[in-house]
């Protein structure tokens, strides 16, 4: 097929590229503003006209966040809760997804529909009953008070994603592996799971982000203040009279870093993960 090759400047400046550029600026500007402001002195943050680049560059906000407000503790809490919940979701989700996608089983369709319904259930509707449950269990102010609900809330989506992945793996894979002498568990671990790796990354990144940013339950189920996660911690910075914007910005930057790294590292997998069902199935 022949097509016109654009020449010179029009190759770069065309409506499509302009649109991409526009969207990029739209998305990146607030992030830039966040990062830039976190390095400003508290006077300069509210300066008018606004300071486009921090001058002088100050690290006070960061030290205040960690030293004065104990942000390190929140960060650690978030890491513990998020990592555990993500591992649980992937562990349970891959087994359940495999069963749903692969094994002959009665009642698969109703189960899948139920999962879908659960995954769109508004969180706010269950927080109060869950609070009572947590209280009666004596779990208020504990890691499991967050890990377990996070796992439950993120499982349906993970199961769906993983199921779609398992479904497109040819059934001969299991059969060859069986003939080669592998047990069902070994086949799952050595043959099936590696082929669903993009699905695991996708489910993992989504779960991680969801847990990392969850606010409502983290706020509600913590009555001791020593199990605050990052979103709650940041929201409760300061006192009724003072809102320490600079510290909030600095903490937010630190909070964004792990998610950013995660997405960058697994970008390739996540993109292929989201489109997998569409083209292969």
């Amino acid at each position: 097929m022949r097509y016109r090759r654009r020449k010179g400047i029009s190759r770069i400046v065309n409506p499509l590229n302009a649109a991409v550029l526009g969207v990029s600026i739209f998305v990146l500007l607030p992030i830039y503003w966040l990062v830039a402001s976190s390095f400003k002195t508290s006077v300069n943050i509210g300066a008018s006209p606004p300071q486009y680049f921090p001058d002088p560059i100050s690290f006070t906000n960061y030290s205040t966040a960690f030293v004065h407000y104990g942000f390190g503790r929140y960060f650690l809490n978030s890491v513990v809760v998020t990592v555990f919940a993500t591992l649980l979701v992937l562990g349970i989700g891959s087994l359940a997804g495999y069963a749903m996608g692969r094994l002959p089983m009665r009642g698969k369709a109703p189960m899948l529909v139920t999962l879908l319904v659960i995954s769109v259930f508004p969180e706010i509707a269950v927080v109060s009953p869950l609070y009572l449950l947590m209280r009666d269990l004596g779990w208020l102010g504990s890691y499991q008070a967050l890990i377990i609900p996070y796992t439950a809330f993120n499982l349906p989506f993970a199961i769906w994603i993983l199921r779609n992945y398992f479904m497109v793996i040819p059934k001969e894979m299991e059969e060859t592996s069986r003939i080669d002498g592998a047990t069902t568990m070994r086949t799952f671990w050595s043959v099936i799971l590696p082929q669903a790796l993009p699905g695991l990354f996708t489910a993992g990144v989504f779960t991680f982000t969801a847990c990392w940013t969850e606010f409502l339950m983290a706020l509600t189920f913590d009555n001791t203040n020593s199990f605050r996660t990052i979103p709650v911690g940041i929201a409760l910075f300061g006192s009724p009279n003072v809102i320490p914007y600079g510290t909030i910005f600095a903490a937010s930057v630190v909070a964004v870093v792990p998610v950013g790294i995660l997405v960058l590292v697994f970008r390739k997998f996540v993109v292929s993960g989201l489109t997998a069902g569409a083209v292969k199935g």
Partner: peptide, 28 residues
């Protein structure tokens, strides 16, 4: 199947895509 000690070649080969040729052959 594993106790019958037979080997099967499938029409679509069913090679393990994440393993190298050597790992594929050596898996059993």
């Amino acid at each position: 199947p594993k106790d019958r000690d037979v080997a099967m070649v499938f029409q679509n080969y069913a090679l393990y895509p994440h393993m190298t040729v050597a790992e594929n052959i050596g898996f059993a």
